[in-house]
Amino acid sequence: SHLLVAEPEKIYAMPDPTMPESDIKALTTLCDLADRELVVIIGWAKHIPGFSSLSLGDQMSLLQSAWMEILILSIVFRSLPYEDELVYAEDYVMDEEHSRLTGLLDLYVSILQLVRKYKKLKVEKEEFVTLKAIALANSDSMHIEDMEAVQKLQDALHEALQDFESGQHPEDPRRAGKLLMTLPLLRQTATKAVQHFYSIKVQGKVPMHKLFLEMLEAKV
C-alpha cells in the first residue's frame, strides 16, 4: 500500500510544436521526457519504505544502476492496454514504424517482448509497483557500501510481493517467481537502451539535459 501511494502522477512528453517533425525531434522529446522522469523517480525512491535509511552513497548507487530499468518498466506498464505500441508518455505513443524512423526499432522490439510477458501474466498494479521497487533494490551495483542494509530492503520488498501473491493468487504458488523471472529481460533491455542513448550523446546531435547526461555517464 505504501508503494501504491508513492506511485507518481501521469507524465506528458509535450513535443515542441514549433520544431519540424524529424528523428532528432523525436529523440529530443524522449530525452527531455526521460530527464523529467528521472526527477520523479528520485522523489519516488525516497517513498519506498527503507530506502531513505540507506546511506546517501548507497541510494545514489542503486539509482545510478537501476534508473533505466525503472523507466522501461513504467513504459511497459503504460503500454499494457495497447496493441504493438509503446506508451512513452500519455501523449506520446510510438508504433513500429515511428520507432524505426527514430532508430529505436531494437528497443521497441525488446520492450514489446516485456509487454507481451506481462500481458500473458495479467500483471496487476500492485505487482508492477513492487517489481519496480525490487528492480531498484536488486540493481547489482558494484559500489554498495552496506550490502546488509540493501539485502534487508530486498528481503522486505520480496516479502511484500510474496504476501500479495499468497493473498491474491493462491491458485498459482509460482506467480511471484514468474514475475521475478521477467527481471533478466528487463536488465538486458535497459542495458541496450543505455548503450543506445549513450551513443546518441556521443554523436552530439540531440540536446540532453544535465540530469539525464549525469545518469547516462554513471552507467558506462
Partner: peptide, 15 residues
Amino acid sequence: KEKHKILHRLLQNST
C-alpha cells in the same frame, strides 16, 4: 561523487 551532483542534490532535498 562530484560528477553526480544533481542526483546528490535531489536526494538530499526533503521533497
